[in-house]
Simulated assay, not measured.
Amino acid sequence: MCGVTVCGSMCGVTVCRSMYGVTVCGSMSGETGPSVCGSMFRVTVCEFMYGVIVCLPMIGVRARRVNPDTARLSRDQGQFTLISGHKTDPGFLLHHFLSYYLKAGCSVCVVSLTQSFNHYSVIAQKLGVSLSCARDRGQLHFLEGLRCFTRLLFADSAELEAENPLRFLRNGSDLRPLYNFITAALAPPAGGEWKCPVLIIDDVSVLLSLGVTSVQVLDFIHYCRAGVCSRYQGNVVCLVQGDEGSEDAEYELLLRSLCHQSGLILQVEGLVTGFCKDVHGELTITRRTHNTERPVTYQYKIHDKSVSFFARGLSAAVL
Rank of each mutant, 00 (worst) to 15 (best):
V22H: 07
V22T: 10
T23M: 08
T23S: 07
V24A: 06
V24T: 07
C25I: 13
G26H: 01
M28I: 10
M28V: 12
G30W: 13
G30D: 08
E31A: 00
G33C: 15
P34T: 10
P34D: 02
S35W: 15
S35E: 11
C37W: 13
G38A: 11
S39R: 09
M40G: 09
F41R: 09
V43Y: 00
T44R: 02
T44P: 01
V45A: 12
E47L: 11
F48W: 12
F48D: 04
M49Q: 09
M49P: 03
Y50R: 10
G51T: 07
V54M: 12
V54G: 02
V54D: 00
C55N: 01
L56S: 03
L56G: 03
P57T: 00
P57S: 08
M58S: 04
M58C: 03
I59N: 05
I59K: 00
G60L: 10
G60I: 13
G60K: 14
V61G: 04
V61C: 13
R62L: 09
R62P: 03
R62I: 12
R62H: 11
R62S: 11
A63D: 07
R64G: 13
R65P: 00
R65V: 14
R65T: 07
N67F: 14
T70G: 04
T70P: 01
A71P: 02
R72C: 09
R72I: 14
S74R: 13
R75Y: 10
D76Q: 08
Q77N: 06
Q77F: 11
G78C: 10
G78Q: 05
Q79L: 15
Q79Y: 04
Q79E: 12
F80N: 04
F80D: 04
F80L: 11
T81K: 02
L82P: 12
L82R: 08
S84T: 15
G85L: 05
G85R: 02
H86N: 15
H86C: 09
K87C: 06
T88Y: 06
T88H: 03
P90A: 06
P90M: 07
L93G: 00
L94Q: 02
H95L: 08
F97A: 06
L98Q: 04
L98W: 11
Y100L: 10
Y100V: 00
L102A: 03
K103R: 13
K103Y: 03
A104C: 13
A104L: 08
A104R: 06
A104E: 15
A104D: 11
A104F: 05
C106K: 01
S107A: 11
V108C: 07
V111T: 05
V111G: 00
V111Y: 05
V111K: 01
S112G: 04
S112F: 03
S112I: 05
L113N: 02
T114Q: 09
Q115R: 12
F117L: 13
F117T: 04
N118S: 11
N118Y: 07
H119I: 01
H119E: 06
H119C: 06
Y120H: 14
Y120N: 07
V122K: 12
I123R: 12
I123Q: 06
A124E: 07
A124V: 02
Q125N: 11
K126N: 09
L127I: 08
L127M: 15
V129K: 01
V129I: 14
S130F: 09
S130K: 05
S130L: 08
L131A: 04
L131T: 10
C133E: 12
C133L: 15
A134H: 12
